[in-house]
Design a protein around this nucleic acid. Structure first.
Lengths: 396, 396
DNA sequence: CCAACTTTCTCCACTCACAGGACAAAGAGT
DNA sequence: ACTCTTTGTCCTGTGAGTGGAGAAAGTTGG
């Protein structure tokens, strides 16, 4: 099947496509209300979009007291691929043009295996989704990787936890393999875009999205746009100093936030505590599994284990201190906490909130919600789909 | 004299005005090269601007091998007032439409005297500049105040060091008194705009501008635009935690950056050192003046006093640690250091650089200049003039 | 001093985007 | 059947903008 070849010819068409994508109105009249164009001009642009096939008119809506309107919607055959490459697993999902997830699979993996091995797996996961009948092909794909990206070229740069990926032409390679346009971004930025599109950050212009997983990072959204920084490393808060002369970090310094709180640090601390006999709960989990992860700590905490709760609180305090600084600096309208440790739930959130509300000035915290992301593992893939659709739904 | 009444009628005219302001080309042909409009359209817009009087054509330029071009320039009678209200002094300057300073005066003052007393002084300083023949009136004024501002309304909100200013309608009051449009912003943001317009940050899109004076703050520029945050308190880094369980701060917490390094903290530490007999140099200055300021410390350091140098290095390290975090988070293309303590010069800069380059990741610091502002006390007033001219040179 | 070439600026005709009103189509309510 | 409402189409007028022709004002070289 021939995939999406057309692109919006002008800003009006791009605007209309995004309105339709974001669950907006779907009759010509309703579109006209939002788009500040005359009915005639709007009709012309809609007709052109219908000609390109990006948009279809199917059926009539119920009457609202007058002539029934045509249902205008994005082509139902459009499919986007969202890929979220984490440090230890891959998420791949197919969405329709409205970015609704039609199918989603997750597989464990190690980024350190390098781009070739990882892409083989991504392609086989995409093929599996295709085989299940959800898509006949992809009109575009968004990819998130756990490290800084030179955004215009779609190439990872100097990724600390991804040796072998530096300079690998991710965008070009995947575009070749998949036969469709591809955009690449940092996984944290994609999570922020996901929560902005379909999660807690809808209708918020300036917010921070802190992702605590194997590492720790922060998506920065300014005026509705992701801020990536001059070298694509903005939001890399894992190596901000959290504890003077604290624990050694993989980066060579001491006391980095990531060395004190992250999925990896939490597992390490839990293991130490178990071995020192501080927690029977954790020790028993260590025995059965042979190793501990953040999930074990979450389970222990849920079971009321004091040591596990202490670890979470301690980590939340450290993280909260750093976030407090960022809140003072950036003055966001919302802070979203997400990533693998979301399972630590309310204990973590409470610790973070306490620190932020205590340390930042009232003017910055006065009306500042600090909440957990509501999309969980789908935030990344939705953000990835959003990334490519933003690209495709912009003037050619 | 009637002042500037016209405003650009469309985006093209606004663009042309800004080009002319920023020292750009000044013939129709040269303007056409930059503005991506046909010669005919451009001529129409220039003619309209000439009609409004915002722009004048005076004289002919030298020939470059053909017909001589007309000199197109902004009306030479246009005057902007730039006001920078600091914690302890006021700067007022008059500029022409190209934002060149025609006259600049500075007077000591205490913001805590409240808005009424301060504005009386501002108005008398403005009157003095007028009386000296530099201006017959003002076409617009920009005002910087040392605290957060609700930008759209031009009203200070909850300013910690400015009791009595909370909610005072600065913009409206001064607009009344001066009889011209007024815009109000945080003084730190204005310094950033000043350095962007005429200083070290020309042609840099994303940068941070750290102002260390009585307090400490940070101007944030994203994509050429100042980021003010949702409540106007962005950049308020003075109360970021710098030293766990450190010195008590006026805000009620302990260990804030501002409590450890700022003009006020430096004076306090110098006085302590002098009284403890650690430095003969500082002690003698304390005796002669009865009190110490950052300027005394700078002088002592310049004279080679070890204690003074230590104080500066110590403060620079603290500040550098905080800036390192901001650099990791924001990934700017430039960091500018300015404000009253600029006099501490290279010692301070070296300490800050050391911390940032050590603590932030190479990708973020690799090509990151950290420099002193080059405009000194004029940065604020130039930024203020820029603020109001940006406002006036935008479509009505 | 004249011819040839440059650069700057003006004028004019043509195109296209867009607004806004008239009107047709299709339905609801009475 | 009649009126009112909502939706969608058609048509014409207006103003923005382009691009070419050419006038205006120079320089350079014979």
């Amino acid at each position: 099947m021939r995939r999406m070849t057309a692109r919006p010819a002008n800003a009006h068409q791009a605007r209309l496509l995004r309105l339709l994508r974001d669950g907006g109105p779907n009759s010509r009249a309703q579109l006209g209300d939002r788009v500040d164009l005359s009915r005639s001009k709007l009709a012309v642009e809609v007709d052109r979009l219908l000609e390109t096939g990006l948009v279809v008119a199917d059926g009539l809506a119920a009457s609202r007291g007058g002539r029934r309107s045509h249902n205008i919607r994005l082509a139902p055959a459009l499919r986007f691929l969202g890929v979220d490459i984490g440090a230890t697993s891959i998420d791949v999902a197919v969405t329709n043009a409205e970015l609704e997830i039609l199918g989603h699979i997750n597989q464990p993996m190690d980024v350190r295996d390098g781009p070739v091995a990882v892409f083989e797996q991504v392609l086989s996961m995409a093929a599996k989704l295709k085989a299940s009948g959800l898509a006949e092909g992809f009109d575009g794909a968004g990819i998130g990787v756990p490290g800084p990206v030179r955004f215009p070229e779609g190439v990872p740069v100097a990724p600390p936890i991804m040796p072998g990926w530096d300079g690998f032409p991710v965008r070009e390679a995947l575009s070749q393999e998949l036969g469709c346009p591809v955009m690449v971004d940092n996984d944290v930025n994609l999570m922020a875009m996901g929560e902005q599109h379909a999660g807690v950050a809808r209708s918020v212009g300036d917010f921070l999205c802190v992702k605590i997983g194997t590492g720790i990072g922060c998506g920065i959204v300014v005026g509705g746009e992701v801020h990536r920084g001059v070298t694509g490393s903005a939001g890399d808060i894992g190596h901000i100093l959290a504890v003077p002369d604290g624990r050694p970090c993989a980066c060579g310094n001491r006391g980095c936030l990531e060395a004190h709180f992250s999925g990896a640090a939490l597992a390490r601390d839990a293991k130490e505590a178990a071995q020192q006999g501080l927690s029977a709960e954790l020790a028993s989990r260590l025995e059965t599994g042979g190793t501990l992860t953040a999930i074990d700590v979450a389970a222990a905490a849920a079971a009321g284990d004091a040591t596990a709760l202490d670890l979470i609180r301690e980590g939340g305090n450290r993280t909260g201190q750093v976030i407090a600084g960022l809140v003072s600096f950036f003055n966001p309208g919302l802070v979203v906490i997400g990533g693998g440790v979301t399972g630590l739930g309310h204990t973590l959130l409470a610790a973070i909130r306490t620190q932020v509300y205590r340390q930042s000035l009232p003017l910055a915290t006065g009306n500042l919600p600090i909440v957990l992301g509501e999309l969980g593992p789908t935030a990344g893939v939705i953000g990835a789909a959003r990334l490519i659709s933003d690209h495709l739904f912009s003037p050619a």
